[in-house]
């Protein structure tokens, strides 16, 4: 399996936050996207997940035979928010996503096993809202385990995690890579991963040169 981005350009509003981004990622490899705040790390991940349209370029996921796979169905996306309901218990939250994300056939770990894997055994019966910020993030990581998807798109995965949980997370990702998975993580913390490639976004914003013109007066001057 291979993930390949070619000449991606993404923008937020009227300004281009990155352009000409390309990379190729093979099974078992991870890509860490770094860069200063506002460099477009989150935007890039949302573009990869298909949540935002790319301005230009393409991102394709292909299997060993070179056939295109739907990214939305093959990828886990972990954004800034944890995608959990505070009213429901941890188990209810995770079993919902387990059912929802693997509609056709349940794959991945059982809910209890996933909770164990993030080191929070016994937390299942508690409402999600009772947990601390770090515990919530760890349960959000457990979501990646209850449905098996080869590509993990992680936006600041270790936010709110302490050092111990950091290494737990590194272990989870390493295990995922060893099973032939891929991971793309946006972060400015070292993840403690081996076998990673790094993509650095410089954070220089450009005005959009659109054929319809823009509202950005700098481009008007240049034109």
């Amino acid at each position: 399996m291979q993930a390949k981005a070619t000449n991606l350009r993404g923008r937020r509003g009227d300004s281009v936050v990155f352009s000409a981004v390309g990379f190729t990622l093979q099974s078992g490899r991870a890509l860490v996207v770094t860069g200063p705040n506002g460099a477009g790390k989150s935007t890039l991940l949302r573009v990869l997940a298909g949540l935002l349209g790319a301005d230009e370029g393409s991102f394709r996921l292909t299997d060993a035979a070179g056939i295109d796979l739907p990214v939305a169905r093959e990828a886990h996306y972990l954004g800034h928010a944890n995608a959990m309901k505070r009213e429901l218990t941890v188990t209810e939250n995770l079993s919902f996503w387990r059912n929802f994300l693997a509609a056709d056939q349940p794959s991945g770990l059982s809910v209890d096993a996933a909770i164990d894997a993030v080191g929070l055994s016994g937390v299942g019966h508690l409402p999600f809202g009772y947990l601390s910020a770090g515990q919530k993030r760890r349960i959000a990581l457990a979501r990646l385990l209850v449905a098996r998807r080869p590509l993990w798109l992680l936006d600041e995965p270790t936010a709110a995690l302490d050092a111990k949980a950091d290494s737990m997370f590194a272990g989870l990702v390493t295990a995922h890579l060893e099973r032939g998975g891929m991971a793309i993580a946006a972060t400015h913390q070292p993840l403690g991963l081996e076998s990673v490639e790094t993509l650095r976004l410089d954070g220089v914003h450009h005005a959009v040169d659109s054929e319809h013109g823009t509202w950005d007066d700098r481009s008007e001057v240049r034109a």
């Binding site: 997940a49 996306y77 928010a81 995608a83 929802f100």
Partner: peptide
């Protein structure tokens, strides 16, 4: 949308 679930819901093919 506030808790991020909407992102995962939107990562579906349009018929779904």
């Amino acid at each position: 949308r506030e808790d991020g679930s909407l992102d995962l819901i939107l990562m579906q093919e349009t018929p779904d």
